[in-house]
Design a protein around this nucleic acid. Sequence first.
DNA 1: CTATGTGAAGGCCTTCACAGCG
DNA 2: CGCTGTGAAGGCCTTCACATAG
Lengths: 208, 208
Amino acid sequence: MDRKNIPRATVRRLSLYCRYLAEIREQDIEYVSSRELGGGIGTNAAQVRKDLSFFDRFGTPGRGYPVGFLHQRLEQILGIDGRRWQVAIIGVGRLGSALVDYGGFLKHGFHVVAVLDSDKKKIGQTVKSLTIEDVADLKAVIERSRVDIVVVAVPAEFAQRVATQAVDAGIRAVLNFAPATLILPEEVNLRHVDLAVAMESLSFHLIR
Amino acid sequence: MDRKNIPRATVRRLSLYCRYLAEIREQDIEYVSSRELGGGIGTNAAQVRKDLSFFDRFGTPGRGYPVGFLHQRLEQILGIDGRRWQVAIIGVGRLGSALVDYGGFLKHGFHVVAVLDSDKKKIGQTVKSLTIEDVADLKAVIERSRVDIVVVAVPAEFAQRVATQAVDAGIRAVLNFAPATLILPEEVNLRHVDLAVAMESLSFHLIR
DNA sequence: CTATGTGAAGGCCTTCACAGCG
DNA sequence: CGCTGTGAAGGCCTTCACATAG
């Protein structure tokens, strides 16, 4: 099974299945059918079975999927089992600081190990026991802290530069919050969280 | 042209084209080719032409697209020209408050007109000259302030309830930041901004 | 000769439908 | 008999390629 050939949409749903399974696991439910699992994340039974079939035969015909086992396997597949991904956040504005102590990071195996900014007034201050470092030292910080994932939370006009520097320093995964399109080498994993795009798509569909 | 039949991906790119056009318009560039426009947002020329052809013939063969005109038309199409969409933000935690004064809202025709929370200690306090109201009064607030779009920024366990209440109060567009899958009627426009999903999809692709 | 607009082809993802297993 | 796993069908979106306009 080559991870490159898995549909993006499937990976997205894997996260949602995983979250749903965590919830019903708490309720000591032992088996879940593809229909229930699909309903729980807003898709259908066939989609669930197809998604899971990319990886293995997790289910038992006539019964469904064993909740605990499937949950555990999905965490392995997503790479959030035990493992700790080292995250650096660049840009400590409103959004950046909200992200630093966003509980969700730690909970799911992501660990913020560095915070950077270009503002001399911020450099040296601490956020959640992390000292804000100079973005000019990005490469050194990435290497020293063994950063896996870079979160870009700087103003739009600096986003491309910062992202390129991160990639030059060896980074292969970038999560961009800046309202800007980043152009990076094909092999770099890039995700956008774009408020403007989301709002405008709502606006588009509200008309008429 | 029925807005319902436009591919989601096309609407998404419309926002990106619009942003790119705004940038080069500043530089007094008069015409842009589909190739340049595509390159600017990380797609190709054919895609640009197909996307735009859903709406009109904006271009001039041999020259390209007139930047100012196309920008203006895309703003109209997206519904962000002059018009003001009224936004309510539910949940004034770290994320919620970061959103309230996130400049990007106002700039593009979105106007935060109400902020709500369930925490008695927060209700009555002000954020950016808005008084935090009781989420129990959601329906009244939505009607009084003529809210078009609801932003859900509450903890996951309350997200579904709050969203359902908003829809019952007549809301037809929801932007969800909570790490939870919302199940809402088909006709409601729903967008998710899901950090966990984005991070986990990066994690998935980083393995091996 | 350059660059758009668009039917047709291609590719990817979702849905169907059913064989087969428990 | 219920529910999974999966090839095949279907549908949607992207890419191609060329007729057409300036």
